[in-house]
Simulated assay, not measured.
Amino acid sequence: MCYDIALNANLQKILKRVPLLQTGIRPNFDFTATYHKIGMSFPQWPVVVDNDGLQVDRFTWGPIPKLLDTAEKVKRQRQMYLNARSEKVPESGTMWNAIRHQRCLVPVTGFFEYRQIPGWKNKVPYFIHSREEDIFFIAGLWAYSNSWDVDKPERIPTFTLLTRAANPVMKQIHNGGDNAGRMPLMLPDDLAMQWVKKDLTETDIRNIIQHEYPAEQLEYWPVNSVRKAKPDDESVIARVQYENLPAVEF
């Protein structure tokens, strides 16, 4: 699944990608560019929604479903909701189907996944981004959640990232663990702008979640582990040479 993302960009770069956002910026909106955030830290992130016009605001990564009705349950299980399988969105009776009309876009400059190499003790982390755009969009869903924070008990806007079956490149990189063979639901600009339209039909939703981002439009390379403490700077995405690392075939 996708638990590690980057947004090394400022607000002006996001506005350049979505000119319609010029009039949809919340007062005092700001964010700090980052080379890596892990979902399990439940960070705040710029998220694009259609609220009588496109707007960008800070949402917290990781919804808190009603079934997580104690602080202990939240601590133990919240990370399970950082991602949502896109196949579940049209499936009646699922949590994601219930909020399918609360669609959003999550701007990123890249994401990270770990590759399992036969015979190697440790997985190899990769940084993956679009060859086409500095900033691209991952489809998401949003919801208001009980924060379970003693200092901030109010409901907060949260989001989850949608994932789908991996394309040929991502199948080779994200090839281990319980959720192997998945990748973020990356959307080209035309589908991204459709995704947040309020009048999207059920058929439209099904068509968009079937989009497979072309493997040839991805750029990727191995990096050092992003799960170890390090400065939040360019070194996070620096290319690393691993001896005898098999190539990703495409």
Rank of each mutant, 00 (worst) to 15 (best):
110 G>V: 05
162 L>N: 03
114 Y>W: 15
163 T>A: 07
122 N>I: 07
140 G>I: 01
141 L>V: 09
172 Q>P: 13
141 L>W: 09
125 P>I: 05
148 W>Y: 05
106 V>W: 03
141 L>I: 10
168 P>A: 11
130 S>N: 04
143 A>Y: 03
153 P>I: 08
128 I>V: 12
113 E>G: 08
124 V>N: 09
128 I>M: 01
116 Q>R: 15
133 E>A: 08
151 D>E: 08
123 K>Y: 06
164 R>N: 14
112 F>K: 13
125 P>L: 08
138 I>E: 02
141 L>P: 11
142 W>N: 10
138 I>A: 02
125 P>Y: 04
144 Y>F: 13
129 H>G: 07
141 L>S: 10
146 N>H: 14
130 S>D: 14
151 D>Y: 05
114 Y>D: 14
125 P>S: 08
114 Y>M: 11
131 R>Y: 00
122 N>Q: 13
131 R>V: 04
141 L>M: 12
167 N>L: 11
144 Y>W: 12
115 R>V: 03
153 P>V: 11
151 D>M: 02
106 V>A: 07
160 T>E: 13
150 V>M: 09
141 L>H: 10
160 T>H: 13
125 P>C: 11
138 I>D: 02
156 I>L: 14
144 Y>L: 14
130 S>Y: 00
152 K>Q: 14
120 W>A: 13
150 V>F: 08
139 A>M: 02
112 F>D: 13
125 P>V: 05
116 Q>D: 14
126 Y>D: 11
169 V>M: 03
134 D>Q: 15
130 S>P: 02
127 F>M: 06
132 E>D: 15
107 P>Q: 06
121 K>I: 04
157 P>L: 10
136 F>D: 09
142 W>Q: 09
122 N>H: 12
156 I>P: 10
129 H>P: 03
148 W>A: 03
168 P>E: 13
124 V>C: 05
105 L>E: 01
154 E>S: 09
109 T>Y: 06
139 A>L: 09
160 T>M: 12
112 F>E: 13
111 F>M: 01
143 A>K: 11
129 H>V: 05
166 A>Y: 00
121 K>L: 07
158 T>D: 12
137 F>D: 06
167 N>K: 05
126 Y>N: 06
155 R>C: 00
171 K>I: 01
143 A>I: 09
116 Q>L: 10
167 N>R: 09
129 H>R: 15
119 G>T: 01
121 K>N: 10
153 P>C: 12
165 A>N: 06
107 P>V: 08
111 F>D: 01
116 Q>A: 14
111 F>C: 00
164 R>Y: 00
141 L>T: 10
120 W>M: 04
119 G>M: 02
117 I>F: 03
155 R>Q: 06
172 Q>N: 12
162 L>W: 04
172 Q>Y: 13
158 T>I: 11
160 T>K: 09
144 Y>C: 09
106 V>C: 07
128 I>K: 01
110 G>R: 07
122 N>R: 11
132 E>L: 15
115 R>I: 04
113 E>C: 03
162 L>Y: 04
133 E>Q: 14
155 R>W: 02
111 F>S: 01
131 R>W: 05
119 G>D: 12
162 L>V: 04
117 I>N: 05
159 F>S: 03
124 V>M: 06
123 K>G: 13
128 I>W: 03
169 V>E: 03
114 Y>C: 11
122 N>C: 06
116 Q>V: 12
140 G>D: 01
133 E>R: 04
112 F>W: 12
166 A>T: 06
151 D>R: 05
126 Y>G: 08
169 V>R: 00
118 P>I: 02
160 T>L: 08
155 R>P: 01
